[in-house]
Amino acid sequence: MRNKKIVDYAKFGYLFSIPFILSFCIFTLYPVIYTFVIGFTNLKGAGNTEWQFLPSVGKNLFQNFIDVLTSKTFHKAFRNTWIIWIINFIPQLGFALLFTAWFTDKRTKVKGTGLFKILFYMPNIITAATMAILFNKLFGYPKGAINDIIILLNPAKGAYNFNAHEWPVKLIIAFVQFFQWYGNTMVYLIAGVIGISPEVFEAAEIDGANRVQTFFKITIPCIRQIMLFTLVTSLIGGLNMFDIPQLYIGTDANNAGLTTNMYIRNQAFSGSYMYNRSAAASVILFIIIVALSSILFYILRDKDEAKLKKLKKQELRAAKKGF
């Protein structure tokens, strides 16, 4: 009787996943497979639809991958992407956690938290393109708001060309990225905290835990799943970063703001139309993200749940044997 029920429910698992699978197969799978295949071919040139696999034209099957991995520009793009992501993510998560702690704390009766919560997410609703252009004007040279202030404070020194130097460019891009996304991260974290039962906090308060202790010992462990989510999505978003650096600086300042995703686009659309190399680079990017995320999942996996699963499996096996 019990066994029959389990089978019944499993059916619903499949049933409820069908819409997702169908839509995915129709709209995403074909383009993805197409890309993977192209990475091993000689397809290049605009308007060209004919291609052969590399070995059939006397080349190494992995030639495109080798070209990408040995390219100095790819190395630089890869390094830049990490640097910019890290500079943006640390304060992003830091401030998001800080605001979450402040705004969800029932003890500090801060007024207007509702307004702040709404406001802080707002930068996220403006397109990255608009944001990049506004910041470009802000840091304009020799005329721009920041340079006007610099000249006002120190007329002798003159304007500083932010967009001609490597580090200022990276810092500004990281800042814009931070500015656009800390509110988003905060909203996720707050949604996680709201999901925690109020009794847990009450119990902690009764036990005499202070604010900091409550936050680190209760809140953070409870929203671990959500934090894992923000970490993974931010990592994926960060490694795919495109709009902001592309519109803020492009390939200027000696590729100071070049990201891997921009590199991929440039392979395909900057004149030589090397679809094959672009596809190979995206496969590489894909593999890197998968590898990193798997590591993250492994480190941050829900240990209790894993144990529970094991236990259940054993139970099931035992039940089967018994049956």
Binding site: S71, K72, T73, F74, N161, A164, H165, E166, T251, D252, A253, N254, N255, Y263, N266, Q267, S270, G271, S272
Partner: peptide, 28 residues
Amino acid sequence: DAANQYAEGNLDRDAAVDAFKTNVADNL
């Protein structure tokens, strides 16, 4: 951009030309 980097003094003339050549080779 190579010219700009050279004029700004970030790269000397040869390094600017090299950076340019790398860019063209790697992207085109």
